[in-house]
Design a protein around this nucleic acid. Structure first.
Lengths: 203, 203
DNA sequence: CGCCACATAGTCAGTCTTGACTTTTTAACA
DNA sequence: TGTTAAAAAGTCAAGACTGACTATGTGGCG
């Protein structure tokens, strides 16, 4: 949904071709990095079909594949943009990265390997944090809003790092680092919980 | 990918039907909430086709739709599980919630509405934090790993809250709250940056 | 100039994901 | 006991997304 928001948002200022959009996306690094090439064309096309964009061949410009299409926002598109903007700002659902799922099953690995993998994760997170911090520095000249946006990325990465550190520490505290403690069987705390009785509100 | 990991993980202990899995997922609240019904059946089927699971009709049990299918892990499935577990633990990519995108375009709204929406977001995040904290409390009896997993969710939610607060504060500091300051045109700091020159490593 | 390597601009088949629908079983109650 | 309501268990068509592929232009260099 926020991918659509981004496309409409980029088209606010002036009409663009699919490739223009890709260049902008790429230039912004981590911020927009989840909008992939193929998806851009798909979404632009769908937005056009739904009447949010108009399409026309760009006059004097042909790419390797025939003539380039120029997409422009319609009035409905502008309205849709505002609508989406509100929607995205006001809602929040929990992010699901998957580490949490992995964590639940961590006892399936040897303590040594588990800790080694977490240590590797830690390094990866730090590297990513570095990259984002650099972007943030570059963005300070670009105005408050862009900086706040990148701030968001950085703060989430910081939180991830803090969590990994805390997890490693707690595992050590429980003896996961030591050679052969009470681990062979102590790990088997059953983590399959089943619901019985209350239907656990499904929407 | 972590959805597959979860399915395989749940099947580690014993064979289950699709519906068994759904009950477990629902019972775990926020932790597994991104695995939806339809997807469960699709993924189980695909895993079976790929040889990671075996399927057989559960003996004395029929649901509303014919006989229920019981899925069991194969040796390959067990190996795949471990493989995925390692992969998920070791990698990290930035999460993309969309607020950051929305933030970039915040100047398209009036300062009043923007701040109101952020305030609403703040409330939503707090409510979600509450829900997760409750789950975390309930999970403390369930062992370290489950608690660490839910910790992860909570810490990310905390970070989101901290960000919203900081954003609101900074916007106020810039005069977004006051009635009619220099905003009609001052907001138009161009946030379309384009790449020129270096191809900005695309993998 | 002819050839190679690379950048450009885009398509496409296949995969994942979802919400709305369907059919059967169970429960509740008049 | 018959009727209605809700929950169980699952299907399905359509939408979103991706990576691999394609085909054209462009610059360098022998």
């Amino acid at each position: 949904m926020h991918k659509t928001l981004l496309l409409l948002g980029l088209l606010l200022r002036k009409p663009l071709t699919g490739y223009d959009i890709q260049r902008i996306v790429r230039a912004h690094g981590a911020l927009y990095s989840d909008l992939k090439k193929g998806n851009v064309y798909y979404l632009l096309d769908r937005l056009a079909v739904d009447g949010y964009l108009t399409v026309e061949a760009q006059p004097g410009a042909r790419g390797p594949r025939g003539e380039r299409l120029l997409y422009a926002l319609t009035q409905r598109g502008r309205a849709r943009f505002i609508e989406l903007l509100r929607e995205v700002l006001r809602t929040y659902d929990t992010v699901h990265t998957g580490v949490d799922v992995a964590m639940v099953f961590l006892a399936e690995l040897t303590p040594e390997e588990a800790l080694a993998l977490l240590a590797e994760r830690r390094r990866v997170v730090i590297a990513q944090r570095e990259r984002i911090a650099a972007e943030e520095a570059a963005a300070t000249t670009q105005g408050l809003l862009l900086r706040l946006a990148i701030d968001h990325l950085r703060m989430l990465t910081d939180a991830e790092l803090a969590w990994v550190d805390s997890a490693i520490e707690q595992l050590h505290a429980e003896g996961w680092g030591e050679r052969q403690t009470t681990h062979r069987k102590a790990a088997g705390t059953d983590n399959l919980r089943d619901e019985r009785g209350q239907p656990a509100d499904e929407e």
